[in-house]
Amino acid sequence: MIVCVCRRVSDREISRHARAGMSFDDIQFELGVATQCGQCEGCARDIVAQCSSTAPVALLRAQDAGADGRAWPPLPSAA
């Protein structure tokens, strides 16, 4: 999906750079995202935050957990 229409920057490009360890400021400098009209800045920052190496995977997994804290679907128990 195109996030920055002005510079034609996709969510995949932003994600790739964020996973490589680049900060939003670095990505903004490299790709030019959010440097013209600025309407994409919030979305671009959200993508960087989601792909940041400092964001724990457990945080993303917690949304998939049920009320009892177990992942859904239930994992087979080890015998």
Rank of each mutant, 00 (worst) to 15 (best):
V48E: 02
C43V: 15
V5F: 05
D68P: 03
T54E: 14
A58Y: 06
I14P: 03
E13W: 06
R8T: 13
A71H: 13
A44V: 06
S52D: 13
F24S: 01
D46W: 14
S77L: 14
R61S: 12
A58H: 07
Q39G: 11
A44H: 06
G21W: 02
C6Y: 07
S10L: 01
C6F: 07
V5T: 13
R61I: 15
V33C: 00
M22G: 07
R7G: 06
A20F: 06
S53T: 10
L31R: 05
I2A: 09
Q39S: 12
S10Q: 03
F29E: 10
C51D: 11
L60W: 03
I47S: 04
S53G: 10
D26H: 05
M22P: 02
L60P: 03
I27Q: 04
A49T: 05
Q39I: 07
S15H: 08
Q50C: 08
E41Q: 13
C4G: 02
D25V: 11
R16C: 10
A18F: 04
I47E: 00
L59Y: 09
T35P: 01
S52Y: 03
Q50L: 12
V3C: 02
P76S: 08
G21V: 08
L75V: 14
S77Q: 13
R7K: 15
C37H: 07
S77G: 12
S15E: 12
G69H: 07
R61Y: 09
T35L: 02
P56H: 10
V57S: 09
C4Q: 04
C37S: 08
L59D: 09
S15D: 12
A20I: 06
D64G: 07
A55R: 15
M1W: 05
S23H: 05
A20Q: 13
P56L: 09
C51L: 04
A55H: 04
F24I: 00
A79K: 11
I27M: 04
R8W: 09
W72S: 01
P56R: 13
H17T: 05
P56T: 12
F29T: 14
R70Q: 11
A67N: 10
A55V: 08
F29Q: 14
A78Y: 10
S15G: 08
D26Y: 00
A49M: 05
L31P: 01
P73R: 11
V3N: 02
R70D: 10
G66W: 03
R70W: 07
G38W: 00
V3Q: 01
R7M: 13
C4K: 00
C4D: 05
L60S: 08
P56K: 11
Q36H: 08
C40I: 01
F24K: 01
R16H: 09
G69V: 00
F24N: 00
A49L: 06
R16W: 09
D64R: 15
Q63H: 13
Q28K: 13
I2R: 13
A18T: 05
A55Q: 06
L75F: 07
F24L: 00
P56W: 08
Q36W: 08
D25Q: 11
A18G: 04
H17G: 00
